[in-house]
Design a protein around this nucleic acid. Structure first.
Lengths: 221, 221
DNA sequence: TAGTGGTCTAGACCACAGA
DNA sequence: CTGTGGTCTAGACCACTAA
């Protein structure tokens, strides 16, 4: 794997060029084909190679960088940063959901759903506002839960298995009340993560996370 | 792999719980240990399992979601969206770099580096501002290149191999000139990607991408 | 020290897709 | 039709690390 990586990096094998097949590489490197397979598969996962049956393996033309972001529990993200985590429930009630929520959920407009909002803090400085809608019908025992002690973020992740989800990163100007909660000026640019999780075809919850001004999400390539 | 996934999902194996070792699973499923290994390794990559030698494999306590974002060439991102790509160089000159640039590059403050800024558009609507500093000393033939026809984004990716990079996602209020270029109001929240790429220990380039208002980066979990 | 995952080998059959 | 990657098997040795 290191050798193939080196050849790509040094342009010995140039983007778009086909490379020898697994069997030939196995002979060249004096190893088993499975070993070559695993190396090439890993490099293809990283986006360095394109692989197609019969057509063979070639160096990726446009090295699509793939950034893998880890999205931990908010509490853990803060604690991993060496700060003290604090959580405060702002509101929890069943209300008529707006179309922006009911639509992806496949429910009719105005359907009553559980709406929870909360503020997570790090070292007593506001960190992120959690604004969440929960499909109360799909989650048993939900009515009995109060999110005063445990955040919905944490409770759901621990108690509600999901099969898949989608996630969206963006930016948004802070409203007056959001700004107040985060201790920023109204209009400040906030980093936003929106996430919806599903169990099979049932939407479970959708959440909008409004991070404090200056928040950055980092990773390596 | 599907069966293990099912057991985790149905809470048959609960978070934190140790699961049987590879050899036992191979017997249970009537397959080779390598096959179990590959399945568990893949699930561990997905963040569902924690694996440690001697300690064994356990279901991840906090299912850290990993979102994989693909960061393609700007041109390809726009074209993949079915829109017409247009590019315009705004400025290209050698100037004294500010400390925010020289510091990560390990150069002394005020060092003259190549500064390039450009606007990428989709269907003649502003899409993203590219604001880039290039380590002219580390990249041969750079002085001869004009980024009028080909964007630095594209030229560098095609011509400059890099070993690693770091990337950062955030939000920022648009300055007056940025707002003008993007056709937005000053102060509008913009989604920002900052990226620095390295060849071994040499920084090659650092770029700040200021996306148009309303831009979202999406992926699945 | 010993149990666990990490990785390798040699050989095999299969599924897909290009020619 | 056929070359390619996809995946499996049985067996082996190694490297790490918890006990």
């Amino acid at each position: 794997m290191a050798e193939v990586e080196r050849r790509i990096y040094t342009r010995e094998w140039t983007p778009g060029q086909s490379i020898p097949n697994e069997a030939d590489l196995a002979i060249e490197f004096g190893c088993a084909r499975v070993t070559v397979n695993r190396a090439l598969r890993t490099l293809a996962d990283m986006g360095l190679l394109d692989r197609r049956r019969k057509a063979g393996t070639s160096v990726a033309l446009h090295p699509v960088s793939k950034a893998t972001l880890s999205i931990p529990l908010i509490r853990r993200e803060i604690e991993a940063d060496g700060k003290t985590y604090h959580y405060k429930l702002l509101d929890q009630k069943i209300e008529a959901a707006p179309p922006t929520v009911t639509k992806p959920f496949g429910l009719s407009d105005g359907e009553p759903l559980l709406h929870v909002s909360a503020l997570h803090s790090a070292d007593s400085r506001p960190y992120v506002i959690e604004d969440r809608w929960i499909n109360s019908k799909a989650i048993p025992h939900l009515a009995e839960i109060s999110f005063t002690g445990v955040s919905a973020n944490e409770w759901l992740l621990q108690n509600t298995p999901f099969t898949h989800g989608d996630i969206e990163f963006g930016a948004k100007n802070a409203h007056a009340d959001e700004a107040r909660l985060l201790g920023a000026d109204p209009g400040t640019a906030l980093f936003v993560i929106s996430r919806t999780t599903w169990d099979q075809k049932t939407a479970l919850t959708t959440v909008k996370l409004l991070f404090h001004a200056g928040y950055r999400k980092q990773t390596r390539l």
